[in-house]
Amino acid sequence: MDLIFEGIIKAFWLLVTFDPEVMSIMFLSLKISGSATLVSLFIGLSAGSALALTQFPGKKIVVGAVNTGMGLPPVVVGLFVSIFLWRSGPLGFLELLYTPTAIIIAQSIIATPIVTGITLASLQQLPKKMRLQILALGASRAQMVWMLVKEAKLPLLAAVMAGFGGVISEIGASIMVGGNIKGYSRVLTTATVMETSKGNFDIAIALSIILLFLAYLINLVLTYVQQRERPR
């Protein structure tokens, strides 16, 4: 118990004194996961909207694939991104393995199905006649899509948070393609694993508290969104 107690006290000390190493790991994590979320938003919002608003043969198969992708194991993503970026791999010439860019690529692949799936569900949850109502008010197709996205803005915010939450807390892909290089590709999760294995519980706990705080913020926003009512 002393170990945990002392660890928590030291962790709070590291946080309140803005320990440079902890801060640098936190900011790098936010930068990498934030970038990956932006990439996944760009792809996922477009793909989710297109899926929600069009009908085509085999749509259910595609939706099923997206839903499966929402639970994509990060280590599997890490494995395939590593193979592709390996020196002798198809994209080895880019020399991206063990760089923050490699982590962004892997995390984007993890987050994109999450954002796509939630976007699809958000737009499908709008009243079915909303689309007809917008068209009946004289909207062009582009205006209609934009209005629907605006109407689903809060569930779409949930997509952002879920995507971000999914990547900031994953470790498998980050450690496999990032390499956990100090000051370069070391993020919150990889650092926590390493510090724990070294017995540096204070730093590990400090990093965990930051992760928990971010997870709490995300869930707070999601709860707010879930409990909100739509207009009549």
Partner: peptide
């Protein structure tokens, strides 16, 4: 057109 549900925007 006006529908049975008001379908107002948020």
């Amino acid at each position: 057109m006006v529908f049975q549900e008001p379908l107002l925007f948020d």
